[in-house]
Nucleic acid binder design. Structure first.
Length: 228
DNA sequence: TGCCAGGCCGGGT
DNA sequence: ACCCGGCATGGC
């Protein structure tokens, strides 16, 4: 068990280096949800094109997306890749939201009121929504305090030997949730900071992460811990 | 030019 | 219960 303050010290170092990340970049909670699906194993720049297309077509609303023609949806989100799978996933998610929220409920208040466990279970029951996508939606769209774990998170922690390389999602999530105060804004920005570290210093093949702001806190990774 | 990106599912061991 | 191939586009 890591001592209580380490994860906070890590956060302070990242925050000092990068500033507040202001995540998730979106104009509405539903746009966050859509982005969460579109960004599955996909570069965010490609996701932005797809979202712009959806916005242009006025399909960035739950009911409209749920009823949209599948082939039309596919054409619009094509730049985000995996477009055949993602079109189906988006329609399922949009249908779920549309069933729960009135069209005028743009803040998705009807969903925000429900308990976390219930929401997470229902999201995970939708095919195409796994743990990371569900938690991104819970945290950034619905304001629930869950810690989001992604590939960068595991890679960064594994390279510093804070978790095993083959850890399960829940283990890494507990590592953060047990080592931090339960704080919505902290969870939001912490994950965003980790993604920033990942993009800059912790790519899959990157043999080393020089100048990474984590090193003063955690020490530099050694050669043994490099590759995935 | 291949490798990579803010995963997830289904089939085979 | 794990392991692996498939899914697809665009940037460097």
């Amino acid at each position: 068990m890591t001592e209580k303050g380490l994860l906070l010290k890590v956060y302070e170092a990242l925050r000092a280096a990068f500033g507040c990340r202001h995540w998730w970049p979106a104009e509405s909670p539903f746009e966050v949800m859509v982005g969460a699906v579109l960004t599955q194993n996909t570069n965010w720049a490609n996701v932005e094109r797809a979202i712009a297309n959806l916005k242009q077509a006025d399909l960035l609303r739950p009911a409209a997306m749920a009823e949209a023609e599948l082939t039309k949806l596919q054409a619009l989100i094509r730049p985000a890749g995996y477009y055949r799978q993602k079109s189906v996933r988006l329609k399922r998610l949009a249908g779920w939201v549309a069933r729960r929220c009135a069209p005028a409920d743009e803040g998705l208040k009807a969903l925000r009121g429900l308990p976390l466990d219930c929401l997470r279970e229902e999201l995970l029951a939708l095919k195409g929504i796994g743990p990371e996508t569900a938690d991104s939606i819970l945290l950034y769209a619905l304001g629930q305090p869950v810690f989001v774990v992604d590939a960068y998170t595991v890679r960064i922690l594994a390279r510093h030997q804070l978790v095993a390389r083959d850890s399960r999602y829940g283990e890494v999530q507990s590592f953060f949730q047990d080592g931090l105060p339960t704080d919505l804004e902290l969870f939001k920005d912490y994950h965003a900071q980790l993604v920033e570290v990942g993009k800059r210093y912790c790519k899959r093949r990157a043999p080393r992460c020089q100048d990474c702001p984590l090193h003063p806190v955690l020490g530099a990774p050694t050669l043994e811990m490099e590759l995935p």
